[in-house]
C-alpha cells in the first residue's frame, strides 16, 4: 500500500499562496472523456479541517473534478487524466497507488442518498467488516450515527431496513457510513440537492460540525448554501477554475455574483 495515512493527515505540501497545509493539491489537471475535454488546466488545493466548496453551473465539471479526487473515473472507459492530484504530498495517480487505500482515506457522499437495502446497522457494520474490522463494530456504529446526528432517531430500530428511513435520514446514514472508515477527507457531491428544505438544513448543520475534525470538499450549485458553510471557494465555469480563494473574500469581491448572474444562478 503506497498511501500511509492518517497519521500524516494534513502534513502535506503547502500551497505557495497560503501558509495553511494542503491536504489535497491539484495542479494543471485536465480530464478528457472520449474526445470531450471536461476539465482544462485546473489548479486548486484543499486545506485541512474546513469546507472547500466548488460551485458552478451544471456541466461546468465540478462533479467530475470531485470524482477525480478519489479515482472514481478508474471505472469509466476512454478517460484520460493529465496533471497532478496530490493527497498529503503523494500523487494519487502515481503507479502502484492502492485505490482501496485512496478511497478509505478520501470518502464520498453522493447527490442522492445511497443506503444499501440492508438494515441501518448493517449499512455501517458491513462497510467495516469488508475492511477486515471485526472488533468494536457496535461502538463504531453508534459513534458514527451520533456524529451524523442520526443516533437518537434510529437507536431503537437499528435492525430495520435502511430503506424505511426518510430521504434526509438516508443521506445522513450515507454520511455516517462514509465516516465509519474515519476518512481524512470527505467529498460531498451536492449532498442536499435531492432533499427537502428541513433535511437540507440538517445536512448543512452536520457539515459545520464535521468540519472541525474532517476536511470536506463540497460541490453545490446553491450559492446560499456555499456562502453558509464554505471556508474556501472555487468557481468553475466550462471546465476551468475561474476563481479560487477564501470564501469570504470571493463573496465580498462580487465575482461570484457576477458569475451567478452570467450563468443564471447556476441553474440546473
Amino acid at each position: 500500500m503506497l498511501l500511509t495515512l492518517p497519521s500524516d493527515r494534513g502534513n502535506g505540501t503547502s500551497s505557495p499562496q497560503d501558509d495553511h497545509p494542503a491536504v489535497i493539491d491539484v495542479e494543471a489537471l485536465s480530464l478528457t472523456v472520449g474526445t470531450r475535454a471536461v476539465l482544462r488546466q485546473v489548479n486548486f488545493w484543499v486545506p485541512a479541517n474546513g469546507i472547500t466548496t466548488v460551485v458552478g453551473p451544471s456541466g461546468s465539471g465540478k462533479s467530475s473534478l470531485l470524482r477525480i479526487l478519489n479515482r472514481m473515473w478508474d471505472h469509466v472507459p476512454r478517460v484520460r487524466i493529465e496533471g497532478h492530484v496530490r493527497f498529503s504530498g503523494q500523487d494519487l495517480y502515481a503507479r502502484g497507488v492502492d485505490v482501496r487505500a485512496v478511497r478509505t482515506h478520501i470518502g464520498m457522499v453522493f447527490q442522492r442518498p445511497t443506503p444499501f437495502p440492508r438494515s441501518i446497522y448493517d449499512n455501517i457494520a458491513l462497510t467495516l467488516r469488508v475492511h477486515g474490522i471485526r472488533q468494536g463494530i457496535s461502538d463504531r456504529v453508534e459513534s458514527v450515527l451520533s456524529a451524523s446526528g442520526l443516533w437518537d432517531e434510529v437507536k431503537d430500530r437499528l435492525l430495520a431496513s435502511a430503506l424505511t428511513l426518510s430521504g434526509g435520514q438516508q443521506q445522513r446514514l450515507s454520511i455516517a457510513r462514509a465516516l465509519a472508515l474515519n476518512p481524512a477527507v470527505l467529498l460531498m457531491d451536492e449532498p442536499q440537492s435531492a432533499l427537502d428544505p428541513r433535511s437540507r438544513d440538517q445536512i448543512t448543520q452536520l457539515m459545520l460540525t464535521l468540519k472541525k475534525h474532517t476536511t470536506i470538499v463540497l460541490v453545490t450549485h446553491h450559492l446560499d448554501e456555499a456562502k453558509r458553510v464554505s471556508d474556501r471557494l472555487g468557481v468553475m465555469v466550462g471546465g476551468t477554475m475561474e476563481v479560487f480563494g477564501p470564501a469570504r473574500e470571493i463573496f465580498q469581491s462580487e465575482s461570484v455574483a457576477r458569475l451567478a448572474s452570467a450563468t443564471q444562478e447556476f441553474g440546473q
Binding site: M72, A101, V102, R103, F110, T114, L126, R177, A178
Partner: peptide
C-alpha cells in the same frame, strides 16, 4: 443494479470483487 449503489460501494474502498458480492449479487 443502481449505479449509485455500485459507486458508493466503490467509494467506500471496496474492491470490485467485494462490490459484486455485497451489492450486485444480492440484487
Amino acid at each position: 443494479v443502481p449505479r449509485d449503489w455500485v459507486d458508493s460501494a466503490r467509494a467506500l474502498g471496496w474492491t470490485e470483487h467485494e462490490v459484486f458480492w455485497h451489492v450486485i449479487w444480492p440484487h
